[in-house]
Write a protein that binds this DNA or RNA. Sequence first.
DNA 1: CAAGCAACCGACCAGACGGTCAGCCTCATT
DNA 2: AATGAGGCTGACCGTCTGGTCGGTTGCTTG
Lengths: 216, 216
Amino acid sequence: MEDEKTHCSDGEGCRRILEAAENLFADKGFDAASMNAIAARAGISKANIYHYFPNKDALYLAVLRAASGNLRALLAEAVASHGSVTEVLRHFAKSHLEALLERPRLVRLVWREVLEKGAPRARELAEQGFAGVFSALVDILVVGQERGELRPDFDPALVASLLIGANVFFFQARDILRHYPPVHFADDPAAYDEGLVDLLLRGLEAAHGGQPNPVR
Amino acid sequence: MEDEKTHCSDGEGCRRILEAAENLFADKGFDAASMNAIAARAGISKANIYHYFPNKDALYLAVLRAASGNLRALLAEAVASHGSVTEVLRHFAKSHLEALLERPRLVRLVWREVLEKGAPRARELAEQGFAGVFSALVDILVVGQERGELRPDFDPALVASLLIGANVFFFQARDILRHYPPVHFADDPAAYDEGLVDLLLRGLEAAHGGQPNPVR
DNA sequence: CAAGCAACCGACCAGACGGTCAGCCTCATT
DNA sequence: AATGAGGCTGACCGTCTGGTCGGTTGCTTG
C-alpha cells in the first residue's frame, strides 16, 4: 500500500534499469529513448522492465525523481554558509557551477523538463530542485543586506536569478563558447565564477566607510 | 544545380509545410513531431511533404535554417549602437530579451539544437545565430573600455556571456520564476534588465573623476 | 518435497512511424 | 487536341514502437 508499484530501491537488476534509463533519457530525451534500447543497455529483456515499472512514463518519472533528489543533494552543499556574506557568495557561485559540471546528465535531465512546454510530465519535480537553491541564495543575500555588508537597494531575487542563470548558461553554452577566440574561461569555470562574483560585488558591496548612495 | 532539392521559398503549399513543421518541432522536438502530424497541421497529405523535402531530417534542417536566419535578423536589431556605451548597453539588454520573448518558438527551436548532445544535426547553424550577437556585444564592451567609459580591468567576453546568459536564463526559467514569492520581475522583463544593467554598471563604470582602482 | 513467488525471458500484438508509389488533376506549351 | 511536367493524394510497405502473455527459472517458506 506504500510502495504502490515502483517497489524498487532494492534489487540489483532494478538499479541497472534506472541507470540505463537515466543515461538514455538524458542523452536523447523521452521519445528518442526506446524501451528496447534501455533494456539492451541494462543487459536485460524489455519485458523485465515492465516487471518493475508499469509503463514508460512511470519509468521516466522514477528516473526523474531519483535524479532530482540527487541533484538537490548535490546542490545543497553549495549553499553551506560560513564566513562573511561575500565569502559565502564566492563559495556558492563556485561550488554551484562545479556541481552542475560534475553531473551533467542529471542537470540535462532535469532542465529538459523545465524547458518542455508540451508535456508537464513532472515540472513540479524539476522545480523543487530549483526552489531550494534559489531561496537559499536569496536568504544569503537578504542576510547580507541586513548585516549591512551588502547594499540595501538591490533586489535579492534579481541577483539570485542572475547568479544562477549565469552558471546555468555557462553549463549549457560551454561547448559553443569554447571556440570563440575572446573566450578564455570556457575550460576554467573557477575563473569564470571568480570574475563573475568580482563583477557583482562591485555593485553589491556597500561602499567602504560611507553611506551607500542610492541607485539612480 | 543550385537549389539542390529544397527548391522551396516559392510555393504557397511549401510555406505552410515549413510553418507547421516549425510549430511542431519547436513544441515537441524532432522525434515527437511526426510527419503525419505536420501534414495534418499544414492541411495537406503526408506524401506531399516528400514532394518538397527528401526526408524528415532535410525538413528539420530547412526549418532550422529559416528559424536561425529569422532569429539572427531579430537579434541584429538589438545591437544597433548609438549614444554612449552605457546607453548602448542598456538598449542591448532590453531589446535582446524582448527579441527572445517575442518569438519564443524560434528561440526554443534553435536553443534545443545547442543543448542536444546526441545528434550534431545542425549545431553550426544554431551557433551562428549566437556568434553574431556575442561578438557584437564584446565589441561594444571593448569600445567602452577604449573610450575610458568602462573599467579596463574586466574581461569583455565574460561580461558578454553574463549578460546574454542572464537573458537566456530569464527566457527559459520565466515560468518557474513566476511563482516564487520574492520574484516580482517575472512579468516585467524591462525591469529585470534595468536592474541587471544597473547592477553591472556599478562594477563596470569607471569611477567618476578618479583613476580606477584595480580589482582585488 | 511441494508450494509459492519474484525475477526473468522469447515471442508476440496492434498501432504508429518514416517513407514509397502509381496515379489523378490542373495548366502552360506545342 | 495532344503533351508533359508539377502539385497533390490514398493506399501501401517494412520497420519499430510501447506493451502483453505464457512460461521457465531459482530461491524461500511450509
